[in-house]
Design a protein around this nucleic acid. Structure first.
Length: 825
RNA sequence: GCCCGGAUGGCGGAACUGGUAGACGCAAGGGACUUAAAAUCCCUCGGCCGUAUGGCUGUGAGAGUUCGAUUCUCUCUCCGGGCACCA
């Protein structure tokens, strides 16, 4: 018993990892004949070491990959590195080495860690996005998109951090300060590059309906993010001027209730509205203050609504009324037209504003069976109702009236139906060093000139040497100096690098042939492998990464590279790994280091626990004692198999029809387990219940083999082999080793997922619950083919039931087939 | 504020399309083996009452539908996530 008391995970895991390394069973190529299956986990940022979140993510992915292989699919399961990004620059500065050196060192270490987890990747496909062999093709895609008019450059106001010397995204500004260095963020007007994701807004929205394999939550988040609104675009003539103000509204039915007009502070018409008037100075001061306030505003509270009268009026084209034009702080220039018709009676913001500045409130929608009084209203009425004070449209239902009023505007030429999206174009310019250079040249004569494809890649300078310069590109004169590809004159190279989300928007495509040198994408390989059948990653990427990737897929399709519309057929968003109720983080001091766990328990145990402790989509509470439990289970299986080696090498077949008693019971449980585990994985990847099913089979086998009753070796062998195969996707080294130990000449990689015998899973006895008035009073053991009528008799005759019924006569007896009898008295 | 989730023993979590609530695991308690410990094995384990057969009660709270509700409907509380002046 000495040797088999605890299995030697260290030796076993090393042995199998070496074999997988040398025998490369997980390599696939697109010429293979079988049906393909693409499993992908979101690739990691090479921060230095993997953390428990990665362990969980990649364990889930690996189970799916191995499971699908056992089912006979050609599984492509690649891994790589999302290797550009700011942390590399910070670390490099701190340590005096180059970001490239830091990044590649991290990659080397983390690759080792992943291999120690026994993950079944096709390592030939590994890629790192910071490698020119990758970003060269990204630059080419950039040029093709530029050519197609999908990229433009524009001047915008951005959040700029002087200390970090870069643009910050809105979510990186915390209370007006830079999230990293706590220095004040300043507005800066500068040119930046944009991807026209809004060109695809309609399709990105419509195709959400195709994503039936995505969590509803993620689809909803994307739908809201895209934010489509339909309504009316309508021109209001400015009094005594040529200009018109175009507004967008989703509530044309309220347009007779307009009592003023609100413009965003940045609205381009304002200067001409106020020029030379006595309001000019007041308005200008207000605008300056507002813009400043906007910059400082913290994300979590809305400032009070303020505004200023411009001194001008415009005309409501529906009723010819004069309405005063205000500038207001709550109007966004980025959305709609930057001008809003104000209907205080039916819009809460306009209502607050009107009350504050004593502007009239006019009710034009009356609720059913009620009369609103503008004088006493305390908030806007935003529900549908019936039109009033609306001229010829009085009495119309407000929903129906929307269309009528739009048609009216069209007929009279002052408006038309209009659609607005919340989604904005994707600003990809970053002023940092460690990113993919944007491949264009600025020439004074020729303007923006693309770098010729033959001159790609535009390599990041200094990356070949540890000591190389890595200041931002706009500080590197040598890099900047270029000659114009058009006219040959001295010109300047673009110094912005691309947002790292660009790399992750198409890496899953490049994986299909990462060595391809004739273009960004090997169409044949891409066509064969895509889309990704199962994508797995954290829900924190629900919007940005997943939306950008969807956008890229559509662009690549339109560039002729792909034939799919959507990249990820099925998406699994796994929960966080938490400890003591909080997300693991260094600052909370509750991180668990995967390295130490693997050293202590082995990779299989770590994998098993992370799969067992919670279903994948939920948060997983890390529990050290739970890990020991997983380890104990594996040791128990190991002991059992070794104890039963004689059975395991038995060669006689299972004679299902002959089985009796314990043997039949074990045979039945074996097949029930196959059924259950298959269904658990198939329906929603609930590995936790799959594992508990396997545990039950192991427990029963242990009990039965040590009982007095003799069980044919073949039945025991069947049970144990089933355990090993079912466990293989989760604990591959462990299963592989025992599979070999039980005399199999071939590895589990060439085994097949078992199917269950429909006859074998049938129970011959059923426990029927007998209820009296809905409460369980007795249980009956009956043959499973019992008819309803005799079952009912049996229940009514039951001693306990009779006792409970006393003298009462049953009013009604409900029989649920194979489940229960409920007697109502 | 709006939109999504979620709430089940001491803990992580099970429960098929409404049909035995608590599978599996952890922790805890008791026992066996041992000089002892570790490991392993066996038993108990929602709460209350009872020596016990057993009874009552119990899935965040309250109502409802039903022969029967963790499951369906409504209202509410708490927790988590997303969006947040989007016209």
């Amino acid at each position: 018993m000495q040797i088999s008391d605890k299995y030697d995970f260290q030796a076993i895991e090393q042995k199998w990892q070496q074999r997988w390394e040398s025998e490369t069973p997980y390599r696939v190529d697109h010429n293979s004949a079988g049906e393909k299956y693409y499993v992908l986990e979101m690739f990691p940022y090479p921060s230095g070491r993997i953390h428990m979140g990665h362990v969980r993510n990649y364990s889930i992915g690996d189970v799916i990959a191995r499971y699908k292989r056992l089912q006979g699919y050609d599984v492509i399961h690649p891994m790589g590195w999302d290797a550009f990004g700011l942390p590399a620059e910070n670390a490099a500065m701190k340590r005096g080495i180059h970001p490239a050196a830091w990044t590649y060192d991290n990659i080397d270490y983390m690759r080792t860690q992943l291999k120690e987890l026994g993950l079944s990747y096709d390592w030939q496909r590994e890629l790192a996005t910071c490698n020119p062999k990758y970003y060269r093709w990204e630059q080419q895609l950039f040029l093709e998109m530029l050519e197609k008019g999908l990229i433009y450059r524009k001047e915008t106001t951005v959040n700029w951090c002087n200390d970090c010397q870069t643009v910050l995204a809105r979510e990186q500004v915390v209370d007006g300060l830079c999230w990293r260095c706590d220095q004040p963020v300043v507005p800066k007007t500068m040119y930046g590059w944009f991807f026209k994701i809004t060109d695809y807004a309609e399709e990105l929205l419509a195709d959400l309906d195709k994503l039936s394999g995505w969590p509803e939550k993620v689809v909803t988040m994307q739908r809201n993010w895209i934010g489509k609104s339909t309504g009316l675009a309508c021109d209001f003539q400015v009094e005594e001027m040529e200009e018109q103000i175009t507004i967008f509204t989703t509530r044309p039915d309220t347009i007779f209730g307009v009592t003023f007009m609100s413009l965003a502070a940045e609205h381009p018409l304002i200067p001409s509205l106020i020029q030379g008037s006595d309001r000019e100075q007041a308005v200008q001061e207000y605008i300056e203050a507002t813009l400043l306030e906007k910059q400082r505003a913290s994300a979590d509270k809305e400032p009070d609504k303020t505004g200023v009268f411009t001194g001008r009026y415009c005309i409501n084209p529906y009723n010819g009324e004069r309405v005063p034009i205000y500038v207001a702080n709550f109007v966004l220039m980025e959305y709609g037209t930057g001008a809003v018709m104000a209907v205080p009676a039916h819009d809460q913001r306009d209502f607050e504003f009107a009350r504050k500045y004593q502007l009239p409130v006019r009710v034009v929608i009356q609720p059913e069976g009620e009369q609103l009084d503008p004088a006493t209203m305390e908030e806007a009425f935003t529900q549908p109702g019936r039109l009033a004070n609306s001229g010829a449209f009085d009495g119309l239902d407000s929903i129906a009236a929307q269309q009528t009023l739009i048609v009216h505007a069209q007929e009279h030429g002052f408006g038309q139906p209009h659609i607005t999206f919340r989604l904005r174009d994707w600003g990809i310019s970053r002023q940092r060093y460690w990113g993919a250079p944007i491949p264009v040249i600025h020439c004074e004569e020729c303007g923006i000139v693309p770098v010729p494809v033959t001159e790609l890649p535009v390599v990041l300078p200094g990356a070949e040497h540890e000591s190389g310069v890595h200041t931002p590109l706009h500080q590197q004169e040598e890099f900047i100096a270029a000659s114009c590809p058009c006219c040959g004159r001295d010109a300047r190279r673009e110094t912005d690098t691309m947002d790292t989300f660009v790399e992750s928007s198409w890496y899953y495509v490049r994986y299909t042939n990462p060595q391809y040198t004739d273009g960004p994408i090997d169409k044949e390989a891409a066509n064969h492998w895509l889309g990704v059948d199962q994508y797995i990653g954290g829900v924190e990427h629900a919007i940005l990464h997943l939306l950008y990737s969807r956008f890229f897929t559509k662009v690549l399709r339109d560039l002729g590279y792909l034939q799919i519309d959507e990249p990820f057929v099925n998406l699994l968003t796994q929960g966080m790994v938490i400890k003591n109720g909080a997300k693991m983080s260094k600052s909370k001091g509750n991180v668990v280091d995967p390295d130490e766990l693997i050293k202590q328990f082995g990779a299989d145990t770590v994998r098993l626990f992370s799969l067992f402790a919670a279903p994948p989509e939920r948060d997983l509470e890390w529990n050290a004692q739970g890990v020991e439990g997983a380890s104990r289970f594996l040791n128990r299986v190991h002991r059992l198999v070794h104890q039963q080696l004689g059975c395991c090498t038995a060669s006689d077949p299972v004679e299902a029809e002959q089985l009796q008693g314990a043997a039949k019971q074990l045979h039945r449980k074996t097949h029930q387990t196959i059924q259950r585990v298959s269904e658990n994985i198939e329906s929603n990847f609930h590995f936790n219940t799959a594992i508990s099913g396997i545990m039950e089979l192991v427990n029963l086998t242990t009990t039965l083999v040590s009982a007095a009753e003799e069980i044919p070796p073949a039945v025991v062998r069947e049970a144990l082999e089933t355990v090993l195969v079912l466990l293989y996707p989760m604990v591959p080294h462990f299963s592989a080793e025992l599979w070999e130990a039980t005399g199999h000449g071939t590895t589990l990689d060439s085994a097949r997922w078992p199917s269950y015998d429909r006859e074998a899973v049938k129970e011959e006895q059923l426990t029927i619950v007998v209820q009296v008035n809905g409460k369980v009073r007795a249980k009956l053991e009956v043959a499973s083919d019992i008819e309803d009528e005799p079952l009912k008799e049996l229940a009514l005759a039951n001693e306990k039931v009779v006792n409970f019924l006393q003298e009462k006569q049953p009013k009604k007896v409900i029989v649920v087939k194979k489940k229960l009898v409920n007697i109502v008295a």
